[in-house]
Design a binder for these strands. Structure first.
Length: 519
RNA sequence: GGCGCUUUCGUCUAGCGGCUAGGACACAUGCCUCUCACGCAUGGAACACGGGUUCGAUUCCCGUAGGCGCUACCA
């Protein structure tokens, strides 16, 4: 058989914001497509008109734009296989439903939801299948005339797939190998509803994947049980020769406790489960997003890629290009992965440190404005430089900067607010203050102030030139107490750097205040 | 309940018959140091259980137990 061009698709329902698990599925599809020089399709599966949520489609597109996952065709991307919104493909599906009906692979059923509900109550474990369809109201039990007149008189109906029982159906899964399910346990799935003139997922999915020439279906494990049904559908249409290969990905699980990852977990433990912030149009509820939380898209992709896949060695930090090169479905794990949001922050930290200073400043500027600080771009850049320097000041032999401290730019404020705001009070119970502000400290600081007021060149070098000899002469080690004066706590950068930033007058002002306050 | 998938440190995982079972996150300790970090070093920490197969099982097979999923006119 000739080698077909690899084509994959990501096909969400526009029922709300894109779940982070969906992002991972899309990412794997993307990596696979790129690695094989194939196409990635974006399809909207809106066959359930009752669950449509306005804005969801736009949200999903924006999320992928931010993440750097690019589509080659589909809704908003164009292409030769459209339309890519299933609600716009009614006529196409009708034609294929007809084909199934004409070949006897499917039949029409008139049972109402109430009748089915009653049956389920009446018969334990009721399932619409070869054993029970003979006692239901459908085109197999009714005469052609009756069927005709029921439809003519406006009765709603569904089209069901006629499954032949007793056959072992094989699904050749790229991750799990040969999966076998007997057709007897499958029910006669509804493929089409006359009420909204739309197919259900199963039919639309097979027809679209076929028409769009999809070669690989990479999706979540929740689809594995219905994969045999899909295989049967490909056969019913006579498309078995071009049936896509399947790969069912393990699910993302709750960080603690049992079950799969949900929105609730994020709320409870304080991490986002959506790529972007989402404002629910109905409830007005706001769900946090990775973008707004300060994550870098590369960090999110890297972290997500490693949840269920690894390159087979110890490498963890990878660019998108690395991942495209290394990705391998056969190296995907088979069991679900608990969502480790602590490690997600670590990844962000790694990527944050690779960013140039300029990449930090816009975000930092937002924080300052929120805190009501009036500053200059030069001073802001200087603080970023100093804080970043503090984080990365020891680079290793290879020049790798694997430091932590700040996982998000927003973490910066509590660590650097003293650059902009003088201490207004001192916590006498603070361990650092108790240890470094003792009996004679006050006098030492007074002497130190006098010394400082004589320094005309207040640059780092200028200060050192005067202070270093003085400490040697007097034996006074002023740094910790000085830090208390200027910072109010045991944190911050090198004292000379800090003092140089604040300037001599502000430095003296803060020292005076500390001496008066810390009697 | 039925069917399917799955099971290595707390977490993500490497391992594809013979290893002192490796790495990362997290945790602990020490070093460095004007503080907090960062960094470096060290440490604790795992093959679910029971049968087979085999000279030899974490690895292959079968059970059991646990976990997950599906079981809609939702995807």
């Amino acid at each position: 058989m000739e080698q077909r061009k690899v084509r994959v698709r990501f096909a969400p329902s526009p029922t709300g914001p894109l779940h982070i698990g969906g992002v991972r599925t899309a990412l794997y599809n993307y990596l696979f497509a790129r690695q094989h020089g194939g196409d990635m399709i974006f399809r909207i599966e809106d066959t359930d008109s009752t669950r449509f949520v306005p804005g969801a489609e736009e949200y999903i597109i924006e999320a992928f734009r931010w993440l750097g996952i690019q589509f080659d065709e589909g809704v908003s991307f164009g292409g030769q296989h459209g339309p890519y919104r299933q609600s716009e493909r009614r006529d196409i599906y009708k034609q294929y439903v007809r084909q199934l009906l004409d070949t006897g692979k499917a039949y029409i059923a008139f049972d109402t939801p109430e009748e089915l509900e009653a049956k389920r109550k009446e018969i334990e474990n009721f399932q619409y299948d070869a054993r029970t369809r003979g006692m239901m109201r459908n085109s197999l039990t009714l005469s052609p005339d009756e069927v005709e007149s029921l439809i003519a008189s406006g009765h709603q109906y569904v089209v069901r797939f006629r499954i032949e029982p007793g056959e072992d159906v094989h699904v050749d899964d790229l991750i799990r190998g040969d999966v076998v399910i007997n057709s007897s346990i499958l029910d006669d799935k509804v493929l089409y509803k006359s009420a909204d003139q739309l197919p259900t997922y199963h039919l639309a999915n097979i027809v679209d994947d076929h028409l769009m020439e999809v070669t690989h279906v990479i999706r979540g494990e929740e689809w594995l049980p219905s994969a045999p049904l899909h295989v049967l559908l490909y056969r019913a249409f006579g498309w078995q020769d071009t049936m896509p290969r399947f790969a069912h990905l393990p699910l993302l699980l709750k960080p603690v406790g049992n079950g799969k990852l949900s929105k609730r977990d994020g709320d409870k433990l304080g991490f986002p489960v959506f790529p972007l912030e989402w404002h629910d149009p109905k409830t007005g509820e706001v769900s946090s997003g990775y973008r707004e939380r300060g994550y870098l898209p590369q960090a999110v992709c890297n972290f997500l890629a490693l949840l269920g896949w690894n390159p087979g060695n110890d490498q963890e930090l990878m660019t998108m290009d690395d991942m495209i090169r290394l990705f391998d479905l056969s190296k995907c794990s088979k069991n679900g992965a608990k969502f480790d949001y602590v490690k997600a922050a670590w990844f962000n930290h790694q990527y944050l440190l690779m960013q140039p200073d300029e990449a930090w400043t816009p975000e930092f500027d937002k924080i300052l404005r929120a805190e009501g600080i009036v500053s200059t771009p030069e001073r802001e850049a200087e603080v970023v430089r100093m804080m970043k320097l503090k984080v990365i000041e020891y680079t290793d032999g290879e020049g790798n900067r694997k430091k932590r401290n700040v996982s998000f730019v927003s973490d910066l404020w509590p660590l650097c607010k003293f650059f902009f705001v003088a201490p207004t009070a001192f916590d006498r119970d603070d361990k650092f203050i108790r240890k470094n502000w003792r009996e004679g400290t006050r006098d030492e600081m007074q002497q130190f102030m006098q010394l400082i007021s004589t320094i005309d060149d207040f640059s780092v070098e200028g200060q050192k030139a005067v202070i270093d000899p003085w400490t040697e002469q007097t034996g006074i080690r002023p740094w910790n107490a000085w830090r208390i004066c200027l910072v109010g706590a045991g944190q911050g950068p090198d004292m000379y750097e800090l003092a140089a930033f604040l300037g001599r007058e502000e430095t003296l002002r803060r020292m005076q205040f500390a001496i008066e306050t810390l009697a």
